[in-house]
Design a protein around this nucleic acid. Structure first.
Lengths: 210, 210
DNA sequence: GCGTTCAGTAAACAACTGTTTGCCGAAAAT
DNA sequence: ATTTTCGGCAAACAGTTGTTTACTGAACGC
């Protein structure tokens, strides 16, 4: 008498996107314990509940799928950095907020972060290049935000870029360290990076002032 | 008439070590374009000129071979850092010498560096752990050397360790960037890292003095 | 209602994989 | 001189792999 739960009369594109998501999710899960260059098409389709041939309706390659995962991994980056810079301008608080955001993000999207760590220097060139391009882009964005800060007035674009790269790199390395550490170590890691960022900030305040 | 070049009446252990080296070298070469988790035993033995079964006379696993490669990759680290610290104590020159040494080392042992970059966060746990342990050890060594420097007198062990990690990390990241960059970019990368190290040094000079 | 589109399938392809087995032959040990 | 050791090999094992093929059937555009 109840309405049949229905075999879900999903529209075609909805169903297609569902399959695509299943492939991406299955791959991401498998990549927690494996490298992309060691992953197999059949392995992914098996985990996603598709037939092997079905894979090719969505991607030409596993590399292509990998590039999509890279974009998804870094999709929220812009919002995150802007949210950090939105609040109070005090460098101390800015540092604290940055580390908080990273810590939360790593906790919530561990699989994506691990994937990035694995493939940043991994064996699949298109994926490696995609990660590099996104991180370079991120450094640019940070450099622009740094240009707006009063305490860095008078810095050359090159020096701002240099500082931005230093910060980005510290953040990335920290995220990778956090994702591989067991929970007990995480607080100590966050503490260390806070101190390091403060030291860098201190250095930048005396830069060119010497 | 001439003495036959001889089928090389090598002693047994000499021959065994030659095969072992062939396996390691073949694997290292293959890993320039591939990840360890995507490498195959047969692939390695084929490139090394052995039969597949021959592999197991030397290693139980590809992971085992990987760990040996990690150790070889970082074997010269101690000599390198001590050589850098041996000369003049001026921080500026120390930075310049460090970057020079890294640059030369990367140029000469590109394959090993690439391997480390790939497997530092790669999918094979024993190898990943071996890299992590060696780098932690390296940070410890640097922290000890920093303790001897007059300008850091009065620093706590924790702070010295924090600074050492910051330096090590910057070095490692630079090495990985250099090995993937094309030759035209390398000078710019070296320049940037020199500036960043100077900024860190500046920060450490004002640390606790504020 | 009716032909078209197209995501998903099963089956087949040849080629590849890690690992074990028993054996060989030469170096080493006695 | 004879026995033992052992690095290397060929062969076989039971899988696995990526990719293409022709097909099905339901959602689509009209």
């Amino acid at each position: 008498m109840t309405e049949t739960p229905a075999p879900a009369p999903r529209s075609r594109q909805a169903q297609k996107q569902a399959s695509r998501r299943a492939l991406l999710d299955a791959a991401l899960a498998l990549l927690e314990r494996q490298n992309l260059s060691g992953l197999g098409v059949r392995e992914v389709t098996r985990a996603a509940g598709l037939s092997p041939a079905g894979f090719y309706r969505h991607f030409a390659d596993l590399a292509e799928l990998g590039v999509v995962l890279v974009q998804e991994s870094l999709a929220n980056l812009h919002e995150m950095v802007r949210a950090v810079f939105a609040g109070s301008g005090d460098p101390e608080q800015l540092i604290d907020r940055s580390v908080e955001v990273i810590d939360a993000h790593v906790a919530e999207h561990a699989a994506y972060i691990r994937f990035l760590a694995r493939e940043r220097h991994g064996g699949v060139k298109p994926v490696r290049d995609a990660v590099g391009a996104e991180l370079r882009h991120f450094a640019e964005e940070l450099a622009e935000l740094l240009a707006l800060r009063p305490e860095l007035a008078g810095w050359s674009a090159g020096d701002r870029r240099m500082l931005a790269e230093l910060y980005v790199d510290r953040m990335v390395t920290t995220a990778l360290a956090l994702v591989e550490a067991d929970p007990a170590e995480r607080a100590a890691i966050a503490d260390t990076v806070r101190t390091q960022l403060r030291l860098i900030n201190l250095g930048s305040r005396h830069w060119k002032a010497s």
